[in-house]
């Protein structure tokens, strides 16, 4: 069982207030892992910390047993859709083509083969005929699929996705899930911050329950339990959860946990 991502004592702080606290996490290769937790739990930050996009206060992360710098080309990141400028003059194919930039490096232009790969990836997500459509004219679901295609174009071994199913229609959601499973079945690893507790069992193999600190991690069948969910979402706390010096946890939503596990 190879570990694609290994985090040890990972701590990330913002203005000296902890966002991630002392995490020990292993992500297994060839599986689909969900990162789950309430708002403010640090889920997006975890992805960014692994990618080296935010400064780390303490601890280490290793990807493919190396530093992120060394293996950047093997990792594809699909950020939340909010960070993009939708008025940008570009079409769907162009966006997917940007996925090839990492491989090209500075100064080189995308070539014929890059363009072919981009078109192929668009086809794979069912957006092949939208290649020349302006991105501002696409629906939420279509946009998400284009970004997925961009990730595929990177031909990575590890896919990190931040809430890929938000704002997406049911049909697109099913298509994306199918795609993620295909990717996983071909031996790649998928890690996704996931917002919808109901679908975790169906979509993912492993889950990481996060609320600033690590609550639990492992195969969904073992770890995705009522107890663990309660602890994650701040139900009645248990003494062994509190460690000296541990920070307050995020989210005090009283989620009817039982209802979610039906």
């Amino acid at each position: 069982m190879t570990h694609v991502i290994e985090a040890r004592d990972l701590t990330v702080a913002y203005h000296e207030s902890p966002v991630l606290w002392d995490l020990d996490i292993d992500i297994v290769e060839g599986r689909a892992t969900a990162i789950v937790g309430p708002n403010g739990a640090g889920k997006s930050t975890l992805l960014k910390a692994i990618l080296g996009l935010v400064p780390i206060a303490a601890g280490t992360t290793r990807v493919f047993n190396a530093s992120m710098q060394q293996v950047r080309q093997r990792v594809a990141y699909v950020p939340q859709r909010g960070s993009v400028d939708w008025d940008f003059p570009t079409d769907a194919l162009d966006v997917v083509l940007m996925g090839r930039y990492g491989r090209l490096g500075w100064f080189r232009r995308p070539g014929r083969s890059d363009r072919d790969i981009a078109q192929e990836c668009l086809d794979r997500v069912g957006m092949g005929s939208f290649a020349n459509r302006q991105i501002s004219q696409l629906s939420g679901g279509q946009q998400q699929r284009v970004f997925l295609a961009r990730a595929l174009a990177q031909q990575a071994d590890l896919y990190l996705m931040d809430e890929p199913f938000v704002g997406v229609d049911a049909v697109t959601e099913r298509a994306i899930v199918q795609l993620l499973h295909d990717v996983r079945d071909s031996g790649k690893t998928v890690v996704a911050v996931h917002h919808d507790l109901e679908s975790v069992r169906e979509y993912f193999d492993d889950v990481v329950l996060l609320n600033v600190g690590l609550i639990a991690a492992g195969p969904v069948a073992e770890v995705f339990t009522e107890d663990n969910l309660r602890r994650t979402y701040h139900g009645p706390t248990r003494p062994d959860m509190d460690r000296p010096g541990a920070p307050a946890r995020a989210g005090s939503e009283m989620v009817p946990v039982e209802a979610l596990l039906r």
Binding site: R72, V75, Y77, F88, T90, Y101
Partner: peptide, 13 residues
């Protein structure tokens, strides 16, 4: 281009 369009993605590559 990629920086202007999607800074987060740009950082990741």
């Amino acid at each position: 281009k990629v920086l202007t369009f999607d800074p987060l993605f740009a950082a990741s590559i």
